[in-house]
Deep mutational scan, measured.
Amino acid sequence: TTYKLILNGKTLKGETTTEAVDAETAERVFKEYAKKNGVDGEWTYDDATKTFTVTE
Results as ranks from 00 to 15, higher is better:
residue 9 G to W: 04
residue 13 K to I: 12
residue 4 K to W: 11
residue 48 A to M: 12
residue 23 A to L: 15
residue 20 A to V: 05
residue 48 A to P: 08
residue 47 D to Q: 11
residue 38 G to Y: 04
residue 34 A to S: 05
residue 6 I to W: 04
residue 25 T to S: 13
residue 48 A to Q: 15
residue 11 T to A: 14
residue 29 V to N: 06
residue 6 I to K: 08
residue 52 F to A: 01
residue 44 T to I: 08
residue 29 V to Q: 09
residue 4 K to G: 04
residue 54 V to R: 00
residue 18 T to I: 14
residue 22 D to N: 15
residue 40 D to L: 12
residue 7 L to A: 04
residue 8 N to D: 15
residue 43 W to L: 03
residue 34 A to D: 00
residue 30 F to E: 00
residue 17 T to L: 10
residue 44 T to M: 10
residue 9 G to C: 06
residue 12 L to Q: 12
residue 50 K to C: 05
residue 32 E to W: 06
residue 49 T to M: 06
residue 1 T to K: 07
residue 25 T to Y: 08
residue 23 A to K: 08
residue 25 T to G: 09
residue 55 T to P: 01
residue 32 E to Q: 10
residue 29 V to P: 01
residue 32 E to T: 09
residue 9 G to K: 04
residue 13 K to N: 10
residue 36 K to T: 15
residue 5 L to E: 00
residue 15 E to M: 14
residue 50 K to F: 12
residue 4 K to I: 11
residue 36 K to P: 01
residue 25 T to I: 08
residue 18 T to F: 11
residue 42 E to D: 09
residue 28 R to E: 08
residue 53 T to V: 10
residue 36 K to V: 14
residue 18 T to K: 04
residue 40 D to H: 14
residue 43 W to C: 02
residue 32 E to N: 08
residue 18 T to C: 09
residue 10 K to T: 12
residue 44 T to C: 06
residue 39 V to M: 08
residue 15 E to L: 10
residue 26 A to N: 00
residue 37 N to F: 15
residue 1 T to P: 14
residue 1 T to Y: 13
residue 8 N to R: 11
residue 17 T to C: 06
residue 37 N to M: 15
residue 7 L to V: 10
residue 28 R to K: 13
residue 17 T to Y: 14
residue 37 N to A: 15
residue 50 K to P: 00
residue 34 A to H: 01
residue 8 N to Y: 13
residue 5 L to R: 00
residue 7 L to I: 15
residue 27 E to K: 10
residue 11 T to D: 14
residue 4 K to Y: 14
residue 45 Y to V: 02
residue 41 G to F: 03
residue 46 D to G: 02
residue 46 D to E: 09
residue 25 T to L: 06
residue 35 K to W: 15
residue 27 E to T: 04
residue 51 T to N: 02
residue 46 D to T: 05
residue 14 G to H: 09
residue 52 F to H: 02
residue 2 T to C: 13
residue 2 T to W: 14
residue 38 G to I: 04
residue 27 E to P: 00
residue 51 T to R: 03
residue 13 K to L: 07
residue 12 L to T: 14
residue 5 L to D: 00
residue 4 K to E: 03
residue 45 Y to S: 01
residue 14 G to S: 15
residue 18 T to S: 05
residue 15 E to P: 04
residue 41 G to A: 02
residue 45 Y to C: 01
residue 45 Y to Q: 01
residue 48 A to N: 12
residue 35 K to M: 14
residue 46 D to I: 05
residue 38 G to V: 04
residue 25 T to M: 13
residue 12 L to F: 15
residue 9 G to D: 03
residue 50 K to Y: 10
residue 31 K to L: 08
residue 14 G to Y: 10
residue 2 T to S: 09
residue 23 A to D: 08
residue 47 D to W: 08
residue 10 K to M: 13
residue 40 D to M: 13
residue 13 K to C: 11
residue 1 T to A: 14
residue 33 Y to N: 02
residue 27 E to N: 06
residue 35 K to E: 10
residue 4 K to T: 13
residue 43 W to T: 01
residue 31 K to S: 05
residue 52 F to M: 02
residue 30 F to V: 02
residue 34 A to Y: 02
residue 35 K to F: 15
residue 47 D to I: 11
residue 44 T to D: 12
residue 1 T to L: 12
residue 34 A to L: 07
residue 3 Y to G: 00
residue 6 I to E: 04
residue 6 I to L: 08
residue 51 T to P: 00
residue 28 R to W: 07
residue 35 K to D: 09
residue 17 T to D: 05
residue 29 V to Y: 15
residue 21 V to C: 08
residue 16 T to E: 06
residue 32 E to A: 12
residue 5 L to S: 01
residue 48 A to R: 08
residue 19 E to R: 07
residue 45 Y to L: 02
residue 51 T to H: 03
residue 3 Y to C: 01
residue 54 V to I: 08
residue 2 T to E: 09
residue 31 K to N: 04
residue 27 E to M: 14
residue 23 A to S: 12
residue 11 T to V: 13
residue 31 K to R: 14
residue 37 N to G: 05
residue 29 V to W: 11
residue 36 K to R: 14
residue 44 T to V: 10
residue 47 D to F: 10
residue 39 V to T: 04
residue 2 T to D: 05
residue 17 T to N: 07
residue 54 V to F: 05
residue 33 Y to C: 04
residue 41 G to V: 02
residue 26 A to R: 00
residue 48 A to D: 13
residue 8 N to L: 13
residue 56 E to F: 09
residue 15 E to T: 11
residue 18 T to R: 05
residue 30 F to C: 02
residue 35 K to V: 13
residue 9 G to M: 11
residue 21 V to S: 14
residue 33 Y to A: 03
residue 35 K to A: 15
residue 7 L to G: 02
residue 45 Y to H: 02
residue 17 T to H: 12
residue 45 Y to W: 03
residue 46 D to N: 10
residue 39 V to Y: 06
residue 41 G to W: 05
residue 48 A to K: 14
residue 35 K to T: 15
residue 44 T to E: 15
residue 15 E to K: 08
residue 13 K to P: 05
residue 42 E to N: 10
residue 11 T to Y: 13
residue 33 Y to S: 02
residue 54 V to S: 02
residue 13 K to A: 07
residue 10 K to E: 07
residue 12 L to D: 05
residue 3 Y to W: 09
residue 37 N to I: 15
